[in-house]
C-alpha cells in the first residue's frame, strides 16, 4: 500500500469497490455465457464457412437418378412436419418422428396398393429377421418381467387398501354392537320399571312386546345357539377367562390413551428428519434430553 492510496477519499474508495464488484459480476456473467456455449453449437454462424450453392446443385445433378424413375425404385415419401419441433423435449421429438413415419407409411402403402403390388408379408412367409430369435426372447422376457413387476406392486397396494378398509369396517361393527347392547339393556330397564309401576300385572303382554321382535341380550344376535355352553353362561367362552378386552371400559379407555396393537416397528426406524438431526450429538450418554425426541 502506497501513501497515495491511503489518502484516497472514502467516496473514491466506494467507487473502486463498485468497479470491482461490477467487474466480478461481468466475469461471472461471461463465465455463464461460456458455459451456455457448451451446447455443441455456435451462437451465430461463422462468417468464413464455405457455401458453394452452384457446386452443390451441380453435384446433385451429377448423382441424381433420371427424372422418370418410377417411384417403386425410390420408395421415398416427403412428410410435412408442421411447426418446428423442440429438440430438447424428448417426448415431443420422438412423437414427431413417429407421426412422420406413420403418415409416410400410410402414403406409401396407399401408393403400393394403388399399383397392385404386394407389400404385406403373408402370415405363412417365414424368413430371416433382423433380430435373432434369441434376442427377441430376451426382449419378451424383459417385457414380461416389467409387466409382472407392475402387477405385483398393484397387488400390494390393493392389499394395503383392503386392510385399511377392513379395519374401518371392523371398528364400525364393534361400535354398532356396543350400541345395540346398550339399547337392549336400556329397554329391559325400562320394561322393569314399567312393570314395577304397574304392580307386576299383565306380565305376558309386555314380555311379548319387548322380546318378540327378535332382539336379545346376547351378543351376536340371540338366535344363535352356542354348542357346549349352558344357556346361562355369560362368561363368553372359556370358563375362567375374563371378559373380552373390548367390554372392559377401563381397558378400552386405556387402550385409546396409550395405544394398543398396531405396528411398533416404524416408531423405532429412522426417518429423514432423525437421520439429519445431530442435535443429540454422537455421544449418546450425555445427550439424554433428545432421546425421546422422535415420539
Amino acid at each position: 500500500m502506497s501513501y497515495e492510496e491511503d489518502i484516497v477519499s472514502d467516496d473514491e474508495m466506494n467507487m473502486i469497490d463498485e468497479d470491482v464488484a461490477t467487474d466480478s459480476e461481468a466475469e461471472s456473467l461471461s463465465d455463464s455465457d461460456t458455459e451456455n456455449e457448451i451446447t455443441e453449437k455456435l451462437a451465430e454462424p461463422t462468417k468464413t464457412a464455405v457455401y458453394n450453392r452452384a457446386g452443390l446443385l451441380d453435384k446433385l445433378q451429377d448423382i441424381s437418378w433420371p427424372e422418370d424413375v418410377p417411384w417403386t425404385h425410390k420408395l421415398t415419401v416427403e412428410i410435412d412436419q408442421g411447426q418446428a419441433v423442440d429438440v430438447n423435449d424428448d417426448l415431443a421429438r420422438e412423437m414427431a418422428f413417429y407421426t412422420q413415419g406413420l403418415e409416410g407409411t400410410r402414403e406409401g402403402y396407399g401408393k403400393l396398393e394403388a399399383m397392385g403390388l404386394p407389400f404385406l408379408r403373408p402370415s405363412d412367409y417365414f424368413a430371416e429377421m433382423v433380430k435373432s430369435d434369441t434376442h427377441m426372447e430376451k426382449v419378451k422376457s424383459k417385457l414380461l418381467y416389467e409387466k409382472k413387476q407392475i402387477e405385483e406392486s398393484e397387488e400390494r397396494r390393493k392389499a394395503r387398501d383392503n386392510k385399511r378398509m377392513a379395519k374401518e369396517v371392523q371398528s364400525q361393527k364393534m361400535k354398532e354392537r356396543a350400541k345395540q347392547k346398550k339399547d337392549d339393556i336400556e329397554s329391559v330397564k325400562k320394561w322393569r320399571k314399567q312393570r314395577q309401576q304397574s304392580g307386576f300385572s299383565e306380565k305376558g303382554k309386555d314380555l311379548d312386546l319387548e322380546f318378540g321382535n327378535g332382539k336379545s341380550f346376547q351378543r351376536g344376535g340371540g338366535a344363535k345357539k352356542r354348542p357346549g355352553v349352558t344357556p346361562g353362561d355369560r362368561s363368553g367362552g372359556k370358563g375362567g377367562r375374563p371378559t373380552s378386552r373390548m367390554n372392559n371400559k377401563k381397558r378400552e379407555f386405556r387402550d385409546s390413551k396409550f395405544g394398543h396393537g398396531g405396528r411398533k416397528g416404524l416408531n423405532k426406524q429412522n426417518t429423514a428428519e432423525t437421520t439429519n438431526d445431530f442435535k443429540g450429538g454422537f455421544r449418546g450418554g450425555k445427550a439424554s434430553g433428545n432421546k425421546r425426541q422422535k415420539r
Binding site: 415419401v77 424368413a127 430371416e128
Partner: peptide, 20 residues
C-alpha cells in the same frame, strides 16, 4: 423386428427441400 432385407419406405421431413 422385421424381415432382413425387406425394402424400407424412406420418409423425409419436408425441410429437406429447404436448401441446396
Amino acid at each position: 423386428n422385421h424381415l432382413k432385407g425387406s425394402r424400407p419406405l424412406l420418409t423425409f421431413s419436408s425441410n429437406f427441400d429447404k436448401d441446396a
